[in-house]
């Protein structure tokens, strides 16, 4: 944590909403990104992100030392698990809507809109395939893969965010990578290596 981050956390513990909003601005991209990659739906991801920050502000006095980002992502991950469980109970899968060409496709969510149209379409297709491949992974493996390869967290932070041991993180990450590799390879989206 940076010094500014520590000060904001300290002030937020004293009830300073504006200081907490500084933390929100710092992490809202990552929290929303995790939720979006986990759920594949922008509305649900926005709800999870908002709930995450509200829950974090209410519980910030319980935050001790360590990575604030990992603590925040732990709240977000648990919120995503709750949404996924609720979706299973309702037998509705937003991923199916995503694959069926719903307007709320992942390509609409990305920032880089300045590419040429053909490159933009290729990227959009690839991103949709990756998002679909992520949806095939078990939830715990999906969360670890998103945090490590997409968001760039260290193993220790992922272990803290998922409340697991370091070895568990390595194991889940290895399996997730192998499964996603197989998925992309089967759709010829992965560059073929020389054999």
């Amino acid at each position: 944590m940076t010094d500014a981050e520590r000060q904001w956390v300290s002030a937020a513990k004293d009830g300073d909403v504006e200081a907490f909003n500084q933390l929100v601005r710092m992490y809202e991209g990552r929290v929303y990104g995790l939720a979006y990659r986990m759920l594949g739906d922008s509305d649900s991801a926005a709800d999870v992100a908002q709930d995450t920050f509200i829950s974090a502000f209410k519980a910030i006095k319980r935050f001790r030392e360590g990575s604030f980002a990992a603590w925040l992502l732990r709240i977000a991950t648990n919120a995503c698990y709750d949404v996924l469980r609720a979706q299973k109970r309702r037998r509705t899968t937003s991923m199916d809507q995503l694959l069926a060409g719903d307007d709320d496709s992942p390509g609409e969510q990305f920032e880089d809109q300045s590419l040429p149209l053909d490159q933009h379409m290729i990227n959009r297709e690839l991103q949709a395939a990756i998002q679909a491949g992520l949806a095939t992974l078990p939830e715990d493996q999906r969360a670890v893969l998103i945090m490590c390869d997409i968001q760039g967290f260290a193993y220790e932070e992922i272990a803290a965010a998922t409340d697991t041991q370091l070895g568990t993180v390595k194991s889940r990450l290895s399996r997730a990578r192998a499964k996603l590799r197989d998925y992309l390879k089967s759709r010829e989206l992965l560059p073929t290596a020389e054999r």
């Binding site: 909403v17 929100v24 990659r37 926005a46 920032e111 990227n123 893969l145």
Partner: peptide
């Protein structure tokens, strides 16, 4: 290669601010 694809994914843009 797969890791490179994932790392090159553009960041997701939040539809709104989540400040309290």
């Amino acid at each position: 290669s797969m890791q490179a694809l994932l790392q090159e994914l553009p960041p997701v843009r939040p539809p709104r601010s989540f400040t309290l």
